[in-house]
């Protein structure tokens, strides 16, 4: 037992309270300011109104940005699911020279600062591909997002594969199932929830990404974070941004909730 004096406990409790206030008050201010009637955020709020919520719902740029975010997120998730699962199987089922290097390669796009990834891909698109007549356009953004999302699927699937009992697959083979049948009926169901969790994390990561997007989005195309950023840069209708930000905060509970349910489901099965 760690014997703490009452004073020490009080000090610790105070630090925790300040840390929590530091985490949650700013988010609360965003939510409450989205109901302000004023154009600019301020405190205290003089007058409440839902005018900005009404404006946000009919705003064409917001809808377009949201659509772009969803398209890019889905594209990146598909790329990450395919590549991440393949690498996870390779690293879990085989021993080979350079295994650590392959692992590093998957982690690198997220370990290096986003600005390095963004500038490197921007440089390739503009200084290498464009001069030889290849315009990546919209796909440049999806390729970039897919690259740093691989690690999300990889981590989840690899962790699950490590816990799968190999004798079940052997039994399936011994009973005459083809490799494809074994995969479809025995292997995949065992890592399906990790696969889904990886997909959700990959989508969430892509949906939230700003820096890489700045450097890889084609001119005139906004994702939701880019739209928020551009609005913050010219803050004449700041309250509208607060509405979008509030929706993002609320939407962020979904992946937390789903991944907790998936984790619980996986624990119950074991």
């Amino acid at each position: 037992m760690l014997r703490l004096s009452l004073g020490a406990k009080f000090t610790l409790g105070t630090i925790v309270a300040i840390a929590l206030a530091f985490m949650y008050i700013p988010l609360f201010l965003v939510v409450i300011n989205s109901f302000s009637a004023a154009r600019l955020s301020s405190w205290p709020i003089a007058e409440f109104s839902t005018i900005w919520w009404e404006k946000a719902f009919v705003s064409e740029p917001i809808r377009a940005a949201l659509l772009n975010s969803v398209i890019v997120g889905l594209g990146a998730t598909v790329i990450a699911l395919i590549l991440g699962t393949l690498v996870a199987f390779a690293l879990q089922r085989y021993t080979f020279f350079g295994k650590q290097t392959v692992n590093l390669l998957v982690v690198l796009p997220i370990a290096l600062p986003g600005i390095v990834t963004g500038v490197a891909l921007n440089n390739t698109y503009n200084q290498v591909l464009e001069p030889i007549g290849i315009e990546v356009g919209y796909f440049g953004m999806i390729i970039a997002h897919g690259t740093f999302c691989i690690v999300m699927v990889f981590n989840n699937v690899l962790a699950r594969l490590r816990r799968i009992n190999p004798s079940i697959e052997e039994a399936s083979r011994d009973l005459g199932a083809t490799p494809l049948q074994t995969f479809r009926l025995v292997t995949f169901p065992q890592f399906r929830s990790a696969f889904v969790a990886g997909a959700i994390l990959a989508f969430a990561l892509s949906f939230d990404e700003v820096v890489v997007t700045i450097f890889t989005a084609p001119p005139g195309v906004d994702t939701l974070p880019l739209w928020i950023m551009n609005q913050m840069a010219r803050p004449n209708e700041a309250s509208l941004v607060n509405v979008v930000a509030t929706v993002v905060i609320l939407a962020s509970f979904i992946p937390v909730w789903v991944s907790q349910r998936l984790a619980r489901g996986a624990d119950e099965r074991e």
Partner: peptide, 27 residues
């Protein structure tokens, strides 16, 4: 839960939140 939840709240949303908190006429 409380210390992991803000991780998901969105990068720009948090910067916006700090901007609102520390702006001249802010909280």
């Amino acid at each position: 839960v409380a210390i992991t939840l803000p991780l998901w709240a969105g990068y720009l949303v948090k910067i916006l939140a700090m901007r609102i908190t520390f702006t001249e006429e802010g909280f």
